[in-house]
Design a protein around this nucleic acid. Structure first.
Length: 656
DNA sequence: GATCCTCGAGTTCT
DNA sequence: CTCGAGGATC
């Protein structure tokens, strides 16, 4: 029985290493469960448990307190460089010190500075026997039970001596987002989430946060030494410890700076938060020569990026209308610098979100720019601020006064016809680039036209005459002519764009295209029987009903009629679908900013080669093309092992 | 019935 | 880009 247990433990640990550290699943979940359950059985029967059994990873009893842990080697903190110049100054000092010690210049190592918590693992006789927080660098707190829940940390390793390794523990952003999607009490940010998880006395709570860790240093080791950072990292890898795969060598200070800039660029595409980069000397003899001040090593420095997350005060909340009549709360905050921009506003999504995050006017709130672009309120700071007040839920439309309707977590203004902001948004959708593509017609101009009572619906646009426009503010001869010719140009319109422009609920670009392909004319679509609608890809009962209802509505029929009378002429030539080509049967996702192609052009190219442009990444995605500043889709592609091409490589592929 | 995939809708700042 | 939700698939 002991033998079987040993074999099961080894097999399970090996599988976990393949999966969590190398990212290569080797067996099915079912097989894993069977082996795991068998192991639990055996442990119960024998009343014993091997020291490296994976069953130890499940948080057992709740602890009463954390025991102090004295580190074998001190955990140093790093000196900071606040600017690029400060970084170069540091490198200059290092080179001088090396020269003074008669040592040659030595390359640097540049790596991510994880925004998490430092942890220290102790191995003895090849077993994980301790794990501790950093504490003051000399004494920390013992958190082995919590650390055991981190699946990428090996319970046993080949090296048999006594050793301590240092690394950073963090909550992956994917885990953070998944947790907050369902949690009653959302976590404010990944760092606090990881800190709270590790310092929770109940390991089951820690387990639920799905933490991960990366290791970068051997603090103490018996009977072994290293000559370089690379050698040490190789040693860590051989011992199955997860190592960040971002370390890069840089031959000179300017090259190191270049690496740092690249890391800052790549920040949005990572599944974890980093707050900077660490630059250290690669050679250990050089490190020894430089030594330590009383606080920091002289041979390493941390370059801090600008904060990605800040707190500010919530000043007031406005409710904004979308084209469907949906009301969304928009928070006005005291202006703060965040990731290179001054943020004054941030979305709060919906009323349910306000309640869930417990934000109030006057309270301090956490803000981040989720994709480096759109500011989002994550949650509030716990401390109560004098004079906080509730955010009121409106009962009537702030623009037109109509009583609001509640559907799920969302509020709607039912006044489709005469609610000003709603009408403007609807017209804006109608004339937008993906729809009728009426050039030069901005939202501002639309607002002017609506306010002058020149238009009450899309068809009115085509009745505009020059003499209507000229009296308007900031409308000259030229501008009026441009608008009228843009309107004229838009009358010849592919059917799919026209269908999209109508704004049928639940019908977007892709569905509009599929509908055009299937029915070929608006008349056919408008009178389509239910079964015909249902036979279209990705159209189920809800969307079919939504389409049927749209065309049943008298107002919509009149509007369409008016558009036809005004000369709008949708047409459709069935595009011969390409079934061959270099991308036949492949789905391709674009992310980030492409430098030579517009997104639409790139998608055309994919279609022309028999491929399918798609919007989100999954296991079924054949190819991801990543441009500048690619974000989470790139990270997801990496996680799923989907092939990734640069724009250049993509073009080469099509060329070949 | 659960899970995965994909689409639609709404989002800020310069 | 993110989120929620509809549709497809097992």
């Amino acid at each position: 029985m002991q033998e079987e247990m040993r074999a099961l433990v080894d097999r399970l640990n090996e599988t976990a290493y393949q999966y969590y550290t190398l990212g290569e699943p080797t067996i099915s979940d079912k097989e894993w469960d069977e082996m795991y359950n068998r192991l639990i059985d055996l442990e119960r029967q024998t009343g014993t448990r091997l020291p490296d059994s994976p069953t130890r990873r499940v948080g057992g009893e709740v602890l009463a307190a954390f025991a102090p842990h004295r580190h074998l080697a001190r955990l140093w903190s790093l000196d900071k460089a606040q600017s690029e110049q400060a970084l170069l100054d540091w490198a200059g000092r290092v080179e001088k010190l090396l020269a003074a010690a008669n040592l040659p210049t030595c390359p640097f190592f540049v790596e991510h500075k994880f925004d998490g918590l430092t942890i220290n693992l102790t191995y003895e006789g090849g077993r994980l026997v301790g794990a501790a927080t950093r504490g003051d660098g000399i004494v920390g707190e013992e958190i082995l039970a919590q650390v055991l829940t981190i699946k990428s940390i090996p319970l046993s390793i080949p090296f048999q001596g006594r050793m301590e390794v240092h690394g950073e523990c963090y909550m992956p952003l994917s885990a953070f987002n998944a947790y907050n999607r369902t949690a009653k009490e959302p976590l404010k940010n990944p760092r606090n989430a990881a800190a709270g998880a590790l310092r929770n006395l109940d390991p089951a709570v820690t387990a639920s946060r799905r933490l991960d860790a990366r290791f970068y240093d051997v603090g103490y080791i018996e009977g072994r030494s290293f000559l370089s950072q690379e050698e040490m990292l190789d040693f860590l890898r051989e011992n199955r410890l997860p190592v960040s795969d971002c370390e890069q060598e840089a031959a000179s200070p300017t090259e190191a700076l270049q690496r740092v800039r690249e890391i800052e660029q790549s920040r949005a595409g990572l599944d974890y938060m980093i707050d900077g980069a660490v630059i250290k000397l690669a050679d250990f003899r050089a490190r020894d020569a430089l030594g330590y001040t009383d606080k920091f090593p002289r041979w390493a420095v941390a370059y801090k990026f600008e904060a990605e997350e800040v707190t500010t005060t919530l000043e007031k909340v406005d409710w904004q209308l979308g084209r469907t009549g949906k009301l969304t709360p928009l928070a006005h905050v005291a202006p703060v610098e965040l990731a290179g921009a001054t943020v004054r506003r941030a979305t709060l999504n919906n009323y349910g979100d306000i309640l869930r995050k417990r934000v109030k006017i006057g309270a301090k709130v956490w803000i981040r720019r989720s994709n480096e672009v759109i500011p989002e309120i994550m949650g509030r700071v716990e401390e109560y601020v004098e004079g906080e007040r509730e955010i009121e839920k409106p009962s009537v439309c702030p623009a037109c006064g109509s009583p609001l309707e509640e559907r799920g977590a969302h509020l709607f203004c039912p006044n489709r016809e005469h609610c000003r902001p709603q009408l403007i948004k609807r017209l804006s959708h109608f004339s937008g680039r993906e729809a009728m593509d009426i050039e030069t017609l901005s939202d501002k101009t639309l607002a002017q036209l609506v306010d002058a009572e020149l238009i009450h619906g899309p068809a009115d646009l085509y009745r505009l005459r020059k003499e209507d426009l000229l009296p308007l503010e900031r409308f000259g001869e030229k501008k009026a002519e441009n608008l009228l010719s843009a309107l004229e140009k838009s009358k010849e319109i592919p059917l799919d764009r026209f269908v999209f422009a109508l704004g049928i609920p639940n019908v977007g670009r892709k569905t509009a295209r599929d509908l055009a392909e299937k029915f070929g004319s608006l008349e056919a679509l408008a009178s389509a029987p239910r079964e015909a609608l249902l036979s279209v890809d990705d159209v189920g009962e809800i969307i079919a009903d939504s389409i049927a209802e749209f065309f049943r509505d008298e107002k919509n029929r009149l509007e369409i009629q008016a558009l036809y009378q005004a000369g709008v002429a949708p047409h459709w030539e069935t595009e011969a679908l390409v079934h061959e080509g270099k991308l036949a049967g492949k789905s391709v996702v674009f992310t980030g900013t492409l430098s030579t192609l517009a997104r639409a052009q790139a998608e055309e190219l994919v279609l022309a080669q028999g491929g399918k442009p798609a919007s989100s990444v999954s296991k079924k995605t054949s190819l991801v093309v990543a441009g500048e500043n690619a974000g989470s889709k790139l990270a997801k592609a990496q996680a799923l092992g989907v092939p990734i091409l640069s724009e250049e490589e993509f073009l080469q592929l099509l060329d070949s």
